[in-house]
C-alpha cells in the first residue's frame, strides 16, 4: 500500500512547561525527565519530550500532573497543538518535499526530537517506525494546523497517485 495514513491526535491530553526550574519541578511531580536536549522518553500512555534545553512537552495521562501550581522558575505553557501521526512506506518522500532536515540520518536509538519547519510551519517532530513502516509524530501551533494538514495530505495524495501510475524518475 503506497498510501500515507494520517491520524489526528490533537485531542490527546498534553501540557507544557518551561524555565530553569522546569526539570526539577517535573521530577518532583514524578515525571521522568530526558537527560539530553531534544530527546524524549516513553511514559505510560504517552511521552515526555525535552524541547531544547529547558522546555518540556508531556503527553498522555501524565500530563494532568502539570496542573499543579508552578513554583519559582517554572512557566506553564498552554498547549493547543494540532498533533498528527503520519505513517506509510513513502513517508520519507513526503518529508523530502516539505522539510530540509535529513530524517534518515538521525540516530533513532537516541530518541531524537526535531524542532524545525515543515512546509513553512514550525513543527516539533519525532520520527519512528511501526513494525518497519516509517512513521512520524508532528505537533504544530493549532492555528496553522488545518492548513498544514491540508497541505501534507495534498502532498501525500500526489505521491500516492504517482506511485499508482508508475511514475518514472530517479529513486529517492
Amino acid at each position: 500500500m503506497s498510501e500515507i495514513v494520517f491520524e489526528n491526535v490533537s485531542r490527546t491530553p498534553r501540557a507544557g512547561v518551561k524555565g530553569p526550574g522546569a526539570a526539577a519541578w517535573l521530577t518532583s511531580l514524578g515525571v521522568p525527565v530526558p537527560d539530553l536536549p531534544n530527546s524524549w522518553l516513553p511514559l505510560p500512555g504517552g511521552l515526555v519530550a525535552r524541547l531544547g534545553l529547558t522546555e518540556f512537552l508531556v503527553e498522555g495521562p501524565e500530563a494532568a500532573k502539570l496542573a499543579a501550581p508552578p513554583v519559582h522558575g517554572v512557566y506553564p505553557v498552554l498547549r493547543q497543538d494540532t498533533a498528527l501521526v503520519l505513517k506509510g512506506a513513502r513517508l520519507n518522500d513526503l518529508l523530502l518535499e516539505t522539510c530540509s532536515v535529513d530524517f534518515r540520518a538521525l540516530d533513532r536509538a537516541a530518541r531524537p526530537v526535531v524542532l524545525t519547519s515543515m512546509a513553512g510551519v514550525g513543527v516539533t517532530a519525532i520520527p519512528g517506525d511501526d513494525a518497519g513502516v516509517p512513521c512520524i509524530r508532528l505537533w504544530c501551533d493549532g492555528t496553522y494546523g488545518e492548513w498544514l494538514l491540508e497541505t501534507l495530505a495534498g502532498v501525500a495524495a500526489d505521491l500516492t497517485q504517482s506511485s499508482q501510475s508508475h511514475h518514472q524518475g530517479a529513486t529517492s
Binding site: P37, N38, G52, L53, S100, V101, V114, L115, T116, S117
Partner: peptide
Amino acid sequence: PVNGPRAISE
C-alpha cells in the same frame, strides 16, 4: 548550539 546544523531559512 542547541538544535544543530540547519538551513539558514530556519
